[in-house]
Amino acid sequence: MCPRDEHAGNRDAAGAGDLRSGRWRGPAFTNVSAGKQETGHNKGPETGHNSERVTGNGPPVVCLKDLTFAYNGTPVVERANLDILEGDFAVVVGPNGGGKTTLLRLIAGLLRPTRGQVLLFGRPPHEARARIGYTPQHLQFDAHFPVTALDVVLMGRIERRFGGPYSRSDRNAARRALEEVSLSDCADLPFASLSGGQRQRTLIARALACEPDLLLLDEPMAGIDAAIEKRLFELLRGLNGRMTIIMVSHDLSFVSSSVGSVICVNRTVAQHPTGEVTSEAIRGLYGSDVRIIRHDHQFPEDQHRHE
């Protein structure tokens, strides 16, 4: 599907070498920040630690081809090339305003690319949406909306009937999804009365009710305390056994060895396998990333605030 896959492997090895020697501002990353996206930086996770999970059959789950998105003439994501293979657990990181959420929304088909292409399972997003589960941030919801947790989960089945009530199989699927996120006891409680972590799990259950092959999560850990965050992450790791996951995160502390690949987004997009990457190294990357961008006079300073 994406012809540049073929020579991704050897460049990958060079990239990993850079990581190990701690030379984060090596040529690879500078190129990325300068917007000269080259094919070699798009490394599939096949060279990472989780290669045994990758089947390699069929097209990649997500394939971005020269993807550019501009908002009012300002590029937010620029010339992104990326493959995410089946079974990957990809974490999208980068500074605030760097385009993480935009990238996720482009993949989800919620935004139209200015240029380039998004392919999910080899097809445009709107044709593949039955196989995608999408989880927005729990903080964006109206705290007074009168729905129960089960009502919210059932919305994952909304497109299956034109009108009338949900079917029995929809209700069963919704209850199974709630059970999977350990929220069966909360099914009939108002969504508004749940804690942040419970709301986030309800939204994940809603995505699971879609029976997806690809799960997209936008900052699922936002506004959630550390203990709950750990459990949420365990849940996602469990789900990763049967679906590909792409998760936007502002927090890198848990990335280390637990995920398949890290996608760094700061207007441009670069993918790194995490097999050899320690959390300190990623922090270093993150920091140098921001420093490089601050020297980039194409952008106003205030768009690159770092938490």
Binding site: R129, A130, P136, F141, V147, D151, M155, I158, R161
Partner: peptide, 22 residues
């Protein structure tokens, strides 16, 4: 009544509904 579930879903989270093809 006929479109109750669709209307509730769209009122609660229009973007998600759109993603589901509604």
């Amino acid at each position: 009544a006929f479109f109750h579930n669709k209307l509730v879903a769209v009122c609660f989270d229009a973007e998600f509904a759109r993603m589901r093809g509604v």
